[in-house]
Every structure is written in structure tokens, then in C-alpha cells.
Design a protein around this nucleic acid. Structure first.
Length: 562
RNA sequence: GCGCCCGUAGCUCAGUGGAUAGAGCGCUGGCCUCCGGAGCCAGGUGCGCAGGUUCGACUCCUGCCGGGCGCACCA
């Protein structure tokens, strides 16, 4: 499918290529000289037309003439049939500006109405398999703000990629192996004995969160004191098994409330169990990328762009987390994913180059892995930073956040900034039901639109079918501005998807809501007069569709009333 | 010390190498006998500093300054 705006741009691109070919002799361009990689973009300044190209500017290098002269040569060679433009002018340093026939906007609303909830969807992704791995929090506590931001970002990125035609899988990597689960077992053991009235402190480097006390209490409910007297190894194993299940269940539930569902929960332990870690190590060794030093096995990451070499097998024979992670990423590609995306906290950025190095060493394309690094979240309440400490177990959990501000505000706030920008999350703002709150501003626009149609129905009238509407009646500046912005949606989606940047959609939705509010405030819909009323109803309907589709990508509801 | 990210309006932030850098909040003043005032309209100050590449730099490169985060046989 190709949307109106994209079609117009493509036509101009084609006409420009044709013009260069036709003008080669005049320009003195040899037949084998390639056409430069020009852009056809929407100028910021309205006076500069609907599209502008830098083609003439780029041709100066090979043609060696002033750009405006080149533009003057090209323009007569443009095939007007291909472009549907009314006017083409040279401007500024040598831009070629295209002014479309303003009637092109008439096609936008019928198009949106026809696609409905699929408006903005495309097949650019070509069903290629993409995996988005996000959150992957340690199952040793509750989800915190960093996890929450990762969840919102990862889920929206996945939604965007799916919307543009990728075959997307959402995955959660469960770190159920290694040191930390041993710590979890020991911490659980302490809480278990404490619940039984014994003085048994949680280890210094254990998990001190309140939630483990509750987990231990549930364990006690189920098994009583029978594990108090068995061998420590057996006790810890049972406690660990229970705790992992308990934590994962809680995370699953919290994430579901946050609107996030996974296709795959992938166990790290399973990689060890089925020998995948060992196999990966063998493969690296066979390829000559490992060496032994001080009794440990090292990966020559520095030979593949890593910052330094890394230990994969400790002197005690136990593989490191990194070794398992290499096996995990190898497994991802072996499962057929062509594009693998990880959402990580910025504190893991050092991990990126060595992970890519490992992939290269194994013969995979490191560029097929993209890591979205997200910066920290700072919570503000009453203008003050909310201090948190994971070590002491005092931190605001995602459950508490959902309780306090609700899902919509939380989802929106986490994606409204670009991932690599620190996020100041103002709890008071997120809770406020005022115009200060951007998510309400957008939702309000949607609710308003729904209200119009409720009133229409109450007056016993039907919503007009798109093909019975005379859209040419929409000539007001506010109407045209809104329609123009609605036409951008497919492009915005594609851009946001390929940039892995859901914040673009957040801004876009806010923008659309703004255009709608302006329109609504300046003009009546109901009672505007027969033909005009129908046209404005269609405009309102289409705005609602775009807002809903955009919010859907962000995991934010589009309420019919508020 | 080395590496990565960030320095844009009073605050929080947008801005695929393009023409006159935007939005929200805050502040001031206006706007419905009418579809939801959780709305609309108007008002102004800014790309950390210095070089370089380019026809053109907030954007790319180098060096400083300032902030965050990494640099374990932790994960």
C-alpha cells in the first residue's frame, strides 16, 4: 500500500531522476556518473512549497556550475504528468520547491476513513523477523522505574515495528542463573527462618526488599516448616524455585497491567542446561578467539572492536554472565531473527561493544544487533527528587506507580522523551487532570470527538459515510492544517519505527490534538450546515482514528469520555 | 586516566547536513447566551566554548568546559 503523501513524494523523486537523465548533455554529466543521493522533503517554511529538493545543490560538485543555474536547467525537463504539481520554483541557494495542487488534500480524509484502524500501517518491514528484548529484570525483586521505562519503550518499539510490517517477537530474558540467584536463595532462606521466628540475618549482599518477606510468607503458607530441618542445599533449592516462580508471576502481572505482554520468556538457566553455553565457548575456541591466562579463558574482544578482552570462563571453571549472554545472542540469530533489538539501561553501555565483538567473532553481522540505551529516570514529587536505593530495597515500584498515576499517564510519560535523554518523571504532573498534563490533552481531544458523535446519535442522525461527503468544503485554514497533519501519520510511523523512537509518536499525537483543538474552537461541527457539517464530521472522525492509532502504538488508551 | 551518552527559551524537552531553530510548562492579557474551558488566541528570550569539514552545521570531525554512566575471573 502506498499512502497519498508518499505517492506524491515518490512521483517527484521519479520526475527529478528523469530530469537529470534527460538533461545530462546539457549539464555535461557523463552517462555513468551517478545521480547524487538527493532528498525530497517537506520544508519547514510554508512559503517554500509542499516539497523541496536539494538535488541542484548536490549536483554542483560534479557539474561545476552554480546550483541555481543547474536548477534552471533541470526544471524544464521535469515530467509534469508524473508529479501533479502546480508550480515549481527555484529558491534560496538553489532549492527546487514544488507547490502541489492544493486539491491534493481532498484525498486524505477518504483514505483515512477507508483504512480506519489500519491507517498508518505498512508493509515496509516485509515480514522480516525482528526480536525486541526488553526489561529482562532480575527476578530478585520488584520492577522499578528503570524497568518501567524499558517496558514502555520496548513495547512501543515492538508495536511500531509490527505496524510497519515486521514480524515482531517480544522477549524477556530471565536471569535465573549465576550468583544473584544464589543470593536470592540465601536471602529467602533468611526470610524463611525469620518467619519461623529465628534470628537469621539477610546476607550483606543479599536482597533486602520488603517483597521477599512476603514471598517467604507465602512459601511458609504452602510448605510450613518442613524445609527448616532438611539439608541446606535442598532447602535453598526449594526456596529458590518458589521465589523465582513467585517473582516472575508478579512481574508478569505487573507488566500485563502496564499493557505489556511477551511472546517469549527465555530462561538463562536453560542455556546452561542444554549445553548451549559450552557449545558457544567451543565454537569461539575453535575459531581461535579464546586464550588462557591466569587459569581463566579470555575472549579476544579487542580484536573485534571491544574495549578490552573479557573473561568467559573463570579460573574456577564457572562461565561468566557474559559467556551465557553470548550464547543467548547466538541463539537469537539461530532462531532466525534478522534484526535483534535490545533495550538496555545506559549503565550497560559498556556491554554493547563486547557483545557486538562476540557476534562478529562467531560470524554473525554485529550490525544486525541494535541496542537502545536508555538513560536514568528521576522521580519528582512536590518538586523534590524522590531518592531511591535498590540496595536497601527502598525504591518506588512499577506497581506503586501504576497505583498512583495510572497506566496511561505512566506509559505516555516514559516514551515522551527520547531514550537517550534523562527522564524527569513528575508524579504530580502525571496525576494532574489539567491542561498541564500532555496525555490528558491528547485524550481529551479524542473524548471530545467521541462526544460529538454521541450528540449526533442522540439527535437521531447517522454518521455520514465517507463517500457521501464533499470534502472540498473544508477550506478553512484550521481545517486544512489539521488534514495536512493527519496525512503525515504514515510517514511519522515509519520514521519512528526505523529510528526506534516512539517519542516521535508521542509528540505527533500531541501535535494532532493541538490542531484539532484549534479547529474545534474556531468552527462548529454540529449545526455547521448540511454539507459542511458532514465534511467536518468526517474530519473529526478521521482525527479520532489517527489519535487512536497513535495512542495505541504507545499503549495509551483513547477514551470515549473522561 | 580511557570509553559511551548528554549540554538548545526561566524549567522540562523536540529538531533524517538545508532556507527565518520549535513545543509544553511557568508568566501576562484576552476568548463561549452555541458541539466537553481538561479547550482556544496573543505576547520572547536560546543552540556550553573554540577550531575544522561543507555551497550550507544545533546536526559531522577535533580540542576544551560542565553533568551522567561505565571501565571486575559482578550481572
Amino acid at each position: 500500500m502506498r499512502y497519498l503523501l508518499a505517492g506524491l513524494r515518490a512521483g517527484i523523486e521519479r520526475a527529478l531522476r528523469g530530469a537529470v537523465e534527460a538533461a545530462r548533455p546539457e549539464l555535461g554529466l557523463k552517462p555513468d556518473t551517478p545521480v547524487p543521493d538527493f532528498t525530497v522533503e517537506v520544508p519547514r517554511e510554508k512559503n517554500h512549497g509542499d516539497f523541496a529538493t536539494n538535488l541542484a545543490l548536490l549536483l554542483t560538485k560534479t557539474v561545476r556550475r552554480p546550483p541555481r543555474q543547474i536548477a534552471d536547467i533541470l526544471i524544464p525537463h521535469l515530467n509534469r504528468e508524473q508529479m501533479r504539481v502546480r508550480d515549481v520554483v527555484v529558491a534560496g541557494p538553489g532549492f527546487i520547491n514544488f507547490h502541489l495542487d492544493p486539491d491534493w488534500l481532498h484525498g486524505v480524509l477518504p483514505e483515512i476513513a477507508a483504512y480506519g484502524q489500519d491507517y498508518g500501517r505498512s508493509s515496509i518491514g516485509g515480514r522480516r523477523k525482528v526480536q525486541v528484548e526488553f526489561v529482562s529484570a532480575n527476578p530478585t525483586g520488584l520492577l522499578h522505574m528503570g524497568n518501567a521505562r524499558g517496558a514502555a519503550l520496548g513495547d512501543s518499539i515492538a508495536a511500531l515495528l509490527s505496524f510497519v510490517g515486521f514480524d515482531v517477537s517480544r522477549e524477556f530474558y530471565v536471569n535465573d542463573a549465576g550468583h544473584q540467584v544464589e543470593n536470592l536463595a540465601l536471602s529467602m532462606e533468611a526470610r524463611y527462618f525469620q518467619a519461623l521466628g529465628r534470628d537469621w540475618p539477610v546476607p550483606e549482599n543479599g536482597y533486602h526488599g520488603q517483597d521477599l518477606i512476603e514471598t517467604a510468607a507465602r512459601f511458609l503458607d504452602q510448605y510450613g516448616d518442613r524445609y527448616a530441618t532438611v539439608a541446606p542445599a535442598e532447602r535453598r533449592k526449594a526456596l529458590l524455585r518458589f521465589a523465582l516462580e513467585d517473582k516472575l508471576t508478579a512481574m508478569r502481572k505487573t507488566l500485563a497491567q502496564f499493557g505489556v505482554r511477551y511472546d517469549v520468556w527465555f530462561s538463562e538457566q536453560s542455556l546452561h542446561d542444554r549445553g548451549a553455553v559450552r557449545e558457544t565457548l567451543e565454537l569461539l575456541r575453535a575459531r581461535g578467539h579464546l586464550y588462557e591466562k591466569d587459569g581463566a579463558w579470555w575472549f579476544r574482544a579487542s580484536a573485534f572492536g571491544g574495549e578490552k578482552d573479557e573473561v568467559l570462563v573463570r579460573a574456577n571453571g564457572i562461565p561468566t554472565y557474559f559467556a551465557a549472554d553470548i550464547a543467548y545472542h547466538k541463539d537469537k540469530f539461530d532462531r532466525g531473527f534478522e534484526w535483534v533489538i535490545n533495550v538496555w539501561g545506559a549503565d550497560h553501555h559498556g556491554h554493547v561493544s563486547r557483545m557486538k565483538a562476540a557476534l562478529a567473532a562467531l560470524g554473525y553481522d554485529p550490525d544486525a544487533l541494535d541496542v537502545v540505551l536508555m538513560q536514568l529516570v528521576r522521580l519528582y514529587r512536590g518538586g523534590e527528587i524522590v531518592r531511591m536505593s535498590k540496595r536497601t530495597g527502598r525504591y518506588v515500584t512499577l506497581d506503586e506507580l501504576l497505583e498512583e498515576v495510572g497506566r496511561d499517564a505512566a506509559r505516555y510519560f516514559f516514551v515522551m522523551r527520547s531514550a537517550d535523554s534523562h527522564l524527569d518523571f513528575d508524579l504530580d504532573l502525571a496525576k494532574s487532570r489539567t491542561n498541564e498534563n500532555p496525555v490528558y490533552y491528547i485524550q481529551y481531544a479524542h473524548a471530545r470527538i467521541c462526544s460529538i458523535f454521541r450528540q449526533l446519535a442522540e439527535s437521531g442522525r447517522e454518521e455520514p459515510r465517507a463517500d457521501t461527503v464533499d470534502v472540498t468544503l473544508l477550506q478553512e485554514a484550521a481545517e486544512r492544517a489539521l488534514i495536512r497533519r493527519l496525512a503525515d501519520f504514515p510517514d511519522e510511523v515509519a520514521q519512528a519505527a526505523f529510528d526506534l523512537a516512539p517519542h516521535r509518536i508521542a509528540h505527533y499525537a500531541h501535535d494532532v490534538a493541538g490542531f484539532f483543538h484549534s479547529f474545534y474552537n474556531a468552527h462548529r461541527v454540529l449545526g455547521a450546515g448540511d454539507g459542511l457539517e458532514k465534511a467536518r464530521l468526517l474530519l473529526a472522525r478521521c482525527t479520532g482514528v489517527v489519535l487512536r492509532n497513535a495512542l495505541q502504538l504507545l499503549g495509551v488508551a483513547a477514551p470515549e469520555r473522561m
